[in-house]
């Protein structure tokens, strides 16, 4: 079994920043990533709020820069999928697709995945009209009608992005105002192709084997009435679910599975830290994930020094 001082699990902004800081501290660090590094930033067409990039930066470029920056200082990145975390004396044992790896300290930068609506038809039409990534699948909806679900930053941003292709975007939100930041709310309101259906919730996504999604069934929470909206696609942007199943039972998590930490990002298991979108926190943003990655790396370094 190979052994490292620090193993970072996950190669999004949190993991890569932790890797950068660990590499600059000359820790014997290894970063494990199941796909190629980048994380959810890769699903982002254009990042407008990365400080210092005044004109914005593409998600592709930013994730490349994060990776290259960590590599420049000597971080090792390995392709492996983690399935478990255990303890053996002072060591943590990480079970991966490439065998077991021992570590003195671990940073969980597991990230998150789009949450599901949980309505009939969603699973059935996944990839055939139901989508969780506007940047990826928007171009399939040129001059079509789509429905987008959600009211946060991602929903507002993606609804706006989808109007590049779709002739009409219905944004369905369960509340009577958006949660997105003011700049994004204004953009949605000013967009003639977007119609917001306030206080509506989805009941079902319906279609046929031949055509995929053909309509969504909604309920108006104010009147209690049901209605149908004909559409070619249904995009789901209702928040994220943490990719924390692999550490279930090993560290404490909240009801939704987000990992609980103290102010120095240490989890319930000493020497194990959590950073970024997998952590229980108020705001999921690239800049937050990145900042937490730096803090987690420093906290792990202090922990290693104390051993």
């Amino acid at each position: 079994m190979s052994e490292r001082e620090l193993v970072i699990i996950g190669g999004g902004p949190a993991g890569l920043t932790a890797g950068l800081y660990a590499a600059r501290a000359k820790l014997d660090a290894l970063l494990l990533e199941r796909l190629s590094p980048g994380g959810q930033v890769l699903n982002t067409h254009w990042v407008e709020n990365w400080p210092g990039d005044v004109e914005g930066v593409s998600g592709f470029d930013l994730s490349d820069r994060f990776r290259d920056h960590a590599l420049k200082f000597g971080l090792t990145i390995q392709s492996a999928e983690v399935s478990g975390l255990g303890v053996e004396g002072e060591r943590k044992i990480i079970t991966t697709s490439e065998g077991e790896i021992a570590a003195k300290a671990v940073i969980l930068a597991l990230g998150a995945s789009p949450s599901k609506l949980g309505v009939p038809g969603e699973a059935e039409f996944a990839g055939r009209g139901v989508s969780y990534c506007g940047t990826c699948d928007g171009p399939f909806y040129r001059d079509k009608v789509v429905v987008a679900f959600g009211g946060g930053n991602t929903a507002a941003e993606e609804a706006h992005f989808l109007t590049r292709f779709a002739k009409k975007v219905y944004l369905v939100h369960r509340r009577d105002q958006l949660r997105a930041c003011a700049v994004l709310c204004e953009r949605v309101e000013a967009d003639p192709k977007i119609e917001v259906l306030w206080s509506h919730v989805p009941l079902a996504i319906e279609g046929s084997a031949l055509l995929g999604v053909e309509k969504v069934r909604l309920k108006d929470l104010k009147t209690g009435q049901e209605k149908e909206v004909a559409c070619d696609g249904a995009f789901v942007f209702i928040g994220t679910t943490p990719n924390s199943a692999c550490v279930a039972g090993a560290v404490d998590r909240d009801e939704q599975g987000f990992i609980l930490t103290n102010q120095n990002l240490e989890t319930s298991l000493p020497g194990v830290y959590a950073a970024g979108d997998c952590r229980s926190s108020l705001l999921k943003q690239i800049v937050v994930a990145s900042g937490e990655g730096a803090l987690a790396a420093y906290a792990a370094q202090r922990y290693l020094e104390s051993l």
Partner: peptide, 17 residues
Amino acid sequence: WASWCGPCRAIAPVVEE
């Protein structure tokens, strides 16, 4: 796949392996 798709890029090394 397509060049503008982030997850396509993420999965590419897996497909190669």
